[in-house]
Design a protein around this nucleic acid. Structure first.
Lengths: 247, 247
DNA sequence: TTACTTAGTGTTAAATAGACGCTATGTAAA
DNA sequence: TTTACATAGCGTCTATTTAACACTAAGTAA
């Protein structure tokens, strides 16, 4: 069988774990299999699609992200490949696949990606692979189709590891944010409390933030100064590398 | 096209970066495309093969490792998936593929693995995918077929990161070894000099070594005591986790 | 006016990292 | 047999980093 260009490869897909932060919890963009799911347990999944034979894996993941959110140029990292022979073989999964794939029985290896987006920038679209999409708190997701729970957990683990090494959390926040919001973000990702004073000292020591002359308004407490992320200093820092950012 | 069981999937392969330590340098097991390679630059590659539709990715990597070295139950970790559409399309790569694959033109996504073996335990065999195999120092490998240099570099990077978090280096040493050998191993993997006294202090503090009543013999210097690795203590340590082993 | 909420700040003690030099014990070579 | 050579094995000091901990400030809401 020769593969033709412009065709979907029946054996390889990409799935995206799209993280977003609502200033309280870490959320993941989850799609619905259909609008009238009778089985609550298995009606949700990660956005994903077969890859085209003309695109590489990163491009496939970017395409999925763009179709669903409209976003391009987003922080994104491969998690791993998942290739259990039975990963899409449950009757429920098969039923869904038959409705969307020309070769629902083909063996599919999937490559998981995670990406970090600013929730406010997303405009959610239905797409070829998703009837609808919604944000769900990562800690409240208990069951997903296929092996998507495994992919989600691997992605979350990778994010936790990565954030100790690189300040990628900024991708989840708007341009202007407060140290309190950043603090909460780290607590959400690392899933534990972090002493406020120690956190501030450590993050300020990285010297990648620029303080702005603008304060929060309308909050029922002392307003916080906004800061923004200094890309120049950040880039210098990632060149030299640091591996010292754990709590 | 329905996939039949027991068949090689034409679109997905696994490639293995098999690391071995000779007490001096870190080596990688490299195969030869053919015995009379005229082009030195491209005659070498990582061992790899298409996967069977009945096996998962880890099994495919284990199978490749076993065919080549005879070893089973070896430390092994997935690196990443590599899926550039042109990754196997150079004329030289195509020529080789035509001699070994039924569908040499198929798009192939490969999943890279690295594994850590004790060189003394390996008995190298020719196999379905390799005419011959040999150990080459990781720092002396300059060009490989396909995108195998990229896979090698990613694997090496992952090993460097991993060894800071888990004492997996023991997989590269015989049961009895000396602290000097372990020291050299860390220098080889991290590719830099490490102060002997600081290294000893830090590794001993982990409390995962058992000192043996046996010394080196026939060495032209003060003989070192052998130690062995205490699996029980290691397991306890990996449960609690540690992320503090950098130099 | 009071209650409530988050912002913002410093100190201290303990652990860790990093730099550094000497003696001991074996083999090999002179 | 003496000397050269190589690695083993050990301890200290300093600087840095971590972890634990409590109060005042500045807004809004009741």
């Amino acid at each position: 069988m020769a593969q033709h260009k412009q065709e979907l490869n029946p054996n390889v897909s990409a799935d995206c774990v799209i993280f977003g932060f609502d200033f309280e919890k870490l959320n993941v963009l989850i799609i619905r299999r259909s609008t009238d799911a009778t089985n609550k347990a298995t009606r949700m999944a990660l956005p994903g699609d077969l890859i085209y034979d003309t695109e590489n894996l990163d491009m496939a993941a970017s395409r999925i992200l763009k179709e669903l959110t409209g976003l391009t140029n987003i922080f994104m990292e491969q998690v791993a490949a998942f290739g259990d022979p039975d990963r899409i073989k449950t009757p429920q999964d098969q039923k869904w696949l038959k409705s969307i794939r020309t070769q629902p029985n083909a063996r599919v290896i999937t490559v998981g990606y995670y990406s970090l987006v600013k929730m406010e920038d997303c405009s959610l679209h239905a797409s070829s692979f998703a009837k609808s999409a919604e944000w769900i708190a990562v800690n409240e997701i208990e069951e997903l189709a296929f092996d998507h729970m495994e992919i989600l957990q691997a992605a979350f683990k990778k994010l936790k590891e990565k954030i100790r090494i690189q300040p990628i959390g900024f991708n989840l926040l708007p341009e202007k944010f407060t140290l309190g919001q950043l603090h909460k973000l780290y607590e959400a990702i690392l899933d534990k409390q972090i002493d406020k004073r120690n956190f501030r000292r450590k993050i300020l020591k990285l010297d990648i933030l620029t303080s702005l002359d603008e304060k929060q308004k309308g909050v029922a407490h002392k307003p916080s100064k906004f800061v923004k992320f200094n890309e120049r200093k950040y880039n210098k820092l990632t060149e030299t590398g640091f591996d010292n950012f754990s709590f």
